[in-house]
Amino acid sequence: MSWFNNFLNSSIGNKVLVSFTGLFLSLFLVVHLAGNLQLLINDGGHSFNAYSDVMGSNLLIKFVAYGLYIAIIVHAYKGIMISIKNRRARGNVRYAVKSKTKTPWASRNMAFLGSVIFIFIAIHMAHFWFKFKFGYMENHPDLTHYDVVVTGFKQNWIVIFYVVAQLALAWHLLHGFQSAFHTLGLRNGKYTKIITNAGIVFSILIPLAFAIIPILVYMDIYPLGQFTVIPGQSLEGGH
């Protein structure tokens, strides 16, 4: 096993862990976004609540959710430890003339951008996840998940913070997406173009879509028509 242990402890092995967890988180963003977009459906929260109920009760989804928590912790922990180690690798004396080499800003500030995302996730969890899981809903039987989210998005500081966090996410991904493939050895000439381009599209599209939702809710705009009516349930339905 020493060969495999060497791999896990190696610089590349550590980065592979950051890369896999980062890609897993990116995939999760797509699923999460699909759910959030239902906030924009003009049906008084019916679709969103239905989705929210499935998310809260399905066993498989619970299982994946624990994987997700582990992925965030491993990604953040490894990412920060790597950044500290990298800083130390320069030695005690730093350059007097700041490097003139042109490099992307995001690539040098992944730990900072990640930390902004981390703070966002913490507040986000406290705001929604914690409330949904630990009794808040039971104490407020008149409220649906949709109501809690919309009430949140009517507060301007939450909307602003949400948008700022999405900007950080966009920059984190602009570097991170292609970097993850680089770490896995896939950006070696054969697939460089497609990875770079897909990364740019993904990194702009996903955070943009996330950011638009609270802005529209704040302005009371629900642009999406009603796609499906679940038979046997009234539109006021909800929780």
Binding site: S11, I82, K85, N86, T103, H182
Partner: peptide, 26 residues
């Protein structure tokens, strides 16, 4: 240090070695 795929190495390499060699090694 570890590789964060920043690309400063390629930019300053006097022999213009491409960072794609890092991809190959990974």
């Amino acid at each position: 240090g570890f590789c964060s795929n920043i690309g400063a190495c390629e930019a300053e390499c006097p022999k213009e070695i491409s960072v794609e060699t890092i991809g190959m090694m990974n």
